[in-house]
Every structure is written in C-alpha cells, then in structure tokens.
C-alpha cells in the first residue's frame, strides 16, 4: 500500500513516516502541494495524507485538484491546526474523506488510514 504524505513540518513528517513504515506501508513524502499533485499523477498512491497549512499550494488546493478537477477517487485525510475548522469544513465540501487535528496520536492516524483503505 502506497501512502503519500504532504507535510512541511519536518519533525511531524518524519514521525508519521516512521510509524506508517513500521505498519508496513510504503511511504512517499513531500513538503509542498505542488510536488504532491505531481507525485499523485506519477505514483498513483492508495491514500493521501495532507496538512492544510503549506506554502504555495496548500492542502485545500490539493483536495480540489484531486477530487474536483482530476476527479480521482483516492481517499484523502486532511491534517489541521485547531483554529482552522472553517477550512476543514471547506475541505469536506471539496471532497476530503477525513480530518485529524494536531497534535494527534500516531496510533489514531494509523487507525484512520486503515479504515479508509478497507472502504476502498
């Protein structure tokens, strides 16, 4: 199973990578939205985890690009900081499948990832 993580906080990225790799996932990471969209086209991941707050192209743009424009059916989990619930609702409207607020427990992340993959 391929997971794409888009996250600009290095430490957080490394943490998620570590845990997911431990669970046996194949993890591809990037730190901005532009790269993420390119990777989707090239690698066709099974699930995407993206932070909302990122420079240049942010998480919402990724969700819109993948769900609305490219109309792909890849499940997307959105990560958000506490004060951005408005944006989270917007993400859902654009088609995101789940969200987790930071700071989160990595175990929770794994459970949510697995759940979405089962559905697919």
């Amino acid at each position: 199973m391929k997971i794409l993580i888009a996250e600009d906080d290095e430490m957080l990225l490394k943490t998620m990578e570590f845990k997911l790799k431990r669970e046996g996932f194949n993890v591809i990471s990037c730190a901005n939205g532009e790269e993420a969209i390119a990777i989707v086209t090239a690698e066709n991941p099974d699930i995407i985890i993206t932070d909302i707050m990122m420079p240049i192209v942010n998480g919402l743009d990724i969700v819109r690009a993948i769900k609305v424009e490219m109309k792909l059916e890849i499940p997307i989990i959105v990560l958000s900081a506490m004060g951005l619930e408005k944006t989270v609702l917007e993400a859902f409207e654009l088609g995101a499948d789940d969200f987790i607020t930071k700071p989160f427990s990595p175990n929770e992340l794994i459970v949510r990832v697995k759940r979405l993959l089962v559905k697919a």
Binding site: M11, L12, A81, G83, K102, P103
Partner: peptide, 14 residues
Amino acid sequence: LKNEVHKLKSSINL
C-alpha cells in the same frame, strides 16, 4: 506567532 508556536507544540510534545 500563532502558527509558529503551534508548529513548535508538536516537537516540544515529542
């Protein structure tokens, strides 16, 4: 300030 402090939170947490 808000964003940076929040970002720091997870690393500090770790």
